[in-house]
């Protein structure tokens, strides 16, 4: 947790140094895309190699997806109300 925040802050500081270098922004976005791909691939490997997850995938998956969907729906719907009343007016 602390380590992640340190790494993020280091990135932001480095970013501040290249505010006026648009070519580097583009290069950074490419790297960012590939980092996302790598992370999702590794996440897949963790799921695929976890025996307990794979064997009980039916019941466990059903409960997991239900809680996932309802958690997302609840927070997204409430956030839409918050957005409408507090944030939308600040958009240009």
């Amino acid at each position: 947790m602390i380590a992640i925040l340190v790494v993020l802050s280091a990135g932001i500081l480095l970013g501040l140094l290249i505010v006026k270098k648009p070519k580097l922004h583009l290069f950074n976005n490419h790297l960012l895309n590939w980092a996302i791909y790598l992370l999702l691939f590794l996440l897949g490997i963790s799921v695929g190699t976890n025996r307990e997850v794979i064997q009980n995938i039916g019941k466990i998956g059903y409960e997991a997806i239900a809680i996932g969907i309802f958690s997302i729906a609840g927070s997204v719907l409430l956030s839409a109300i918050l957005f409408k009343f507090l944030f939308k007016q600040d958009e240009k």
Binding site: I4, I12, G15, L42
Partner: peptide, 30 residues
């Protein structure tokens, strides 16, 4: 998979890389 690799550890390194790059992206945008 080749044995002997710690893929969870690998994943956390990838996450650090991602955070660093995301940080650059945030910082470089006014």
């Amino acid at each position: 998979l080749p044995s002997g690799y710690d893929f969870d550890k690998f994943g956390s390194y990838a996450l650090y890389l991602l955070m660093f790059l995301a940080g650059i992206s945030i910082g470089s945008n006014k």
